[in-house]
Design a protein around this nucleic acid. Structure first.
Lengths: 177, 177
DNA sequence: ACGAATTATTTTAAGCTTAAAATATCTCGC
DNA sequence: GCGAGATATTTTAAGCTTAAAATAATTCGT
């Protein structure tokens, strides 16, 4: 064993002892719990939306975006806000228009774009669903007190910032110049 | 206004003043942040798995389950652990067998079932991906100290418990007897 | 042992999702 | 005004996902 090898072994051992790392066990457990928790809630919302309103979660999410935009929104804007691909939005919008919940208009200034907005039926339908949805979420977090909720908000904010930083750094690695 | 209406108005007002509720604004904001945070991480993992290993997240998850079961696992067991439908597992397993990463065997005691396990190629492939995956997760949570991670674990545990309780209660409502 | 109920899996139909290629339009510098 | 590059959207092909129906095999009470 060379001196360099010995030094390395000691360094690794020191890191293992002090931080328990080299692996990323704690981080993996935390990620697993975060994922499980979110999936649990999301699956329940999905299931209730289907059972009680015969609607999918993506359709509900799209309608929620439009509810906040009385003058309508382009497909590109929807795609960015929902964080899904443009092609995905095309299909969702088509099906919602089919159901009479949305209407498409030519965009006044740009012939590439169209504006979509909720119809009266769409607004009405969304209002009913949104109220139930709000109640469900209220129930789900019912056992957390205000302190827990605030702390969770704070920690998730830190987590999001940490992830974005990690993503930016790996972008820099990947891109020349 | 009847006396009953007055009492009701006061009660509602009192609740609004003391808890800021009736709506569920804080809970909705918390849920939105939880969802955004999870989706951000999940999308990045998905994208990296595809780019660097040409594999989908569901396939990676399925292989991760099998890695822990040297003697193989039934499709039903996989379905329960991955929390996805049985039909979903059928398709995933078929495609992974096609790729030579999994093998199916008849279950010894139950002719309805089959056992699936990783092939040598599957183990090898998974080991490479799992190491990268662990590093990514380690990076993502890099900015959180041990205290933050512990607190986040605790709060997510409380949240999960709260959600499960809410789900059980609504089950009781729904089921006769 | 018989048959009813349960369990394991597959099939089917519909919808969601993405990346990549194709169209169509716009913008901007010259 | 022209043309190159950017932008908005649609199309395509492949895979993921689910609920519900269909198959097949097991279990259990009698």
């Amino acid at each position: 064993m060379s001196e360099r090898d010995v030094a390395e072994a000691i360094a690794i051992d020191a890191e293992t002892r002090t931080h328990g790392h080299g692996d990323h066990k704690d981080e993996l457990r935390l990620w697993l719990r975060l994922l499980t928790c979110t999936n649990l809630i999301e699956a329940e919302i999905r299931s209730r939306l289907r059972e009680r309103f015969n609607v999918t979660l993506p359709r509900f999410d799209l309608m929620a975006q439009l509810e906040k935009a009385p003058d309508g929104m382009t497909l590109g804007e929807l795609s960015r806000r929902m964080m899904v691909s443009a092609g995905n939005v095309t299909g969702l919008v088509d099906r919602l228009v089919q159901d009479g919940l949305l209407e498409r208009h030519a965009a006044p200034a740009d012939r590439r774009s169209s504006l979509v907005k909720l119809t009266a039926k769409g607004h009405e339908s969304f209002a009913t669903m949104a109220e139930a949805h709000g109640d469900w979420i209220g129930d789900f977090f019912n056992q957390l007190d205000d302190g827990d909720m605030g702390e969770l908000m704070r920690l998730l904010g830190r987590t999001k910032a940490s992830v974005r930083r990690a993503m930016e750094q790996s972008d820099e690695q990947g891109n020349e110049e």
